[in-house]
């Protein structure tokens, strides 16, 4: 089975292990994600902060390319890209004038109903059913499922899971033998795109998330967003100095956690790329 695949810039660089583990997991379950050819950046936070037209045009070109290349469904593992693409699809469908302006400027048709799947929706649809019979090494750990902002909000547009206490990742973690904990920071913000420009803000917001997970006994934080992962993982020295303690809790992608449970190797899943090692838990 083939499905369209939009990796986005993070998965091409700073979060290459997310792409690696997503593709390895898909392959293990007989799904082949096919990259949308000549894709561009979704614009992320910068575009909608500074330039509204650009913020719509960048994702619009990706959506148009995917349709041009014959995909009816695309997998978008990055939560930020998933959010930008979904919001743009929603905005354009409700604004004919903007849709025709952008379509004309891009010289590409902008219609049709491409289905955009985040990583959890992809796993639920194509993988989840077969997980039980493929488990070889259950992840018998307490885990904090961290969804962040962009997977679940704005709910009116995304229509995915619950906004305050989402469950999709918790259900997947329970399916691989882990114990998802109850905690208070499931959908709190990590500081997102302030990683470079306001590292102090990221240290504080991400610090509170790490602290709550640790205090409630979690042994790993599970994520589905490259921004969340890099803030909680690569910014750990800043987080630890904000918290005034040394924390060792690793931050793994949901695809890495499931991959381990179904017997994929640490190398295939890019686990050695984590800054905070996961060796002591998986």
């Amino acid at each position: 089975m083939e499905i369209g695949f939009y990796p986005g810039c993070s998965l091409n660089g700073t979060s290459s292990e997310y792409a690696q583990s997503t593709l390895a997991l898909a392959k293990a379950f007989g799904v082949t994600p096919v990259e949308v050819s000549d894709w561009n950046c979704c614009g992320a936070t910068a575009a909608h902060n500074l330039n509204h037209e650009l913020a719509a045009a960048l994702p619009a070109r990706v959506l148009a390319l995917a349709q041009q290349q014959g995909f009816s469904e695309i997998l978008v593992p990055c939560a930020a890209c998933y959010n930008r693409l979904s919001v743009t699809q929603h905005t354009l469908s409700g604004n004919e004038a903007l849709q025709s302006d952008i379509s004309e400027a891009l010289q590409m048709p902008l219609s049709g109903n491409l289905r955009i799947l985040n990583v959890m929706q992809f796993i639920e649809k194509y993988i989840a059913k077969e997980i039980p019979q493929k488990i070889v090494k259950p992840l018998t750990r307490k885990v904090a499922c961290y969804y962040g902002c962009l997977l679940v909000r704005p709910h009116d547009v995304l229509q995915f899971d619950r906004t305050e206490d989402p469950q999709s990742m918790d259900t997947l973690m329970a399916a691989i033998g882990a114990t998802p904990i109850d905690w208070g920071y499931k959908t709190e913000c990590c500081g997102a795109g302030f990683s470079v420009s306001r590292t102090d803000v990221v240290a504080k917001l991400s610090g509170k998330i790490v602290q709550d997970a640790v205090e409630r006994g979690a042994e790993a934080i599970i994520v589905a967003c490259p921004m969340c992962q890099s803030n909680l993982d690569m910014r750990r020295p800043h987080i630890d100095s904000y918290l005034k303690m040394k924390t060792t809790i690793p931050v793994m992608y949901v695809t890495q956690a499931i991959g381990l449970a179904v017997g994929l190797s640490r190398k295939e899943l890019g686990l050695e790329k984590l800054f905070v090692t996961a060796k002591h838990v998986a």
Binding site: N12, C41, G43, A44, A46, L50, L58
Partner: peptide
């Protein structure tokens, strides 16, 4: 940061 980000996409299409 936002400006540098958009500059990067402007020149290459990807970050």
């Amino acid at each position: 940061f936002h400006r540098a980000f958009l500059d990067s996409i402007k020149y290459t299409g990807r970050l």
